[in-house]
Simulated scan of single mutants.
Amino acid sequence: MEWNVDRTGVIAPRAVHNAADIARRGLMIGDHVTVKKAGDVIPRVEAPAATPVTT
């Protein structure tokens, strides 16, 4: 977790990507995922979302 200061000066936590979890799930840039609230602040990637097939 890192702390981020927004433009109004408010300090808020920011999640840092877990590279091992991303690799384990086989996620790639541009993939769509389902995100669920895991606690008071921290979101969790639940699963990759099915992407529509284009022809």
Rank of each mutant, 00 (worst) to 15 (best):
M1N: 11
M1R: 10
M1A: 15
W3Y: 08
V5M: 09
D6A: 06
D6Q: 05
T8K: 07
T8A: 08
T8W: 12
G9P: 00
V10Y: 11
V10F: 09
I11W: 03
A12Y: 10
A12G: 04
A15Q: 11
V16A: 11
V16W: 03
N18V: 03
A19P: 11
A19R: 09
A19S: 12
A20P: 01
A20G: 13
D21L: 11
R24I: 02
R24A: 15
R24Y: 10
L27T: 03
L27A: 05
L27G: 01
M28T: 14
I29D: 10
I29S: 10
D31A: 14
D31Y: 10
D31Q: 13
H32G: 09
H32Y: 14
H32E: 13
V33K: 03
V35Y: 00
V35L: 15
V35C: 06
K36M: 07
K36T: 06
K37T: 04
K37P: 01
A38H: 01
A38R: 00
G39D: 15
G39C: 05
G39P: 00
I42N: 11
P43V: 03
P43W: 01
R44F: 05
R44S: 10
V45L: 13
V45I: 15
A47G: 12
A47W: 00
A47Y: 00
P48K: 12
P48M: 09
P48L: 12
A49R: 14
A50Q: 07
T51S: 13
V53R: 07
V53G: 05
T54R: 08
T55L: 13
T55M: 11
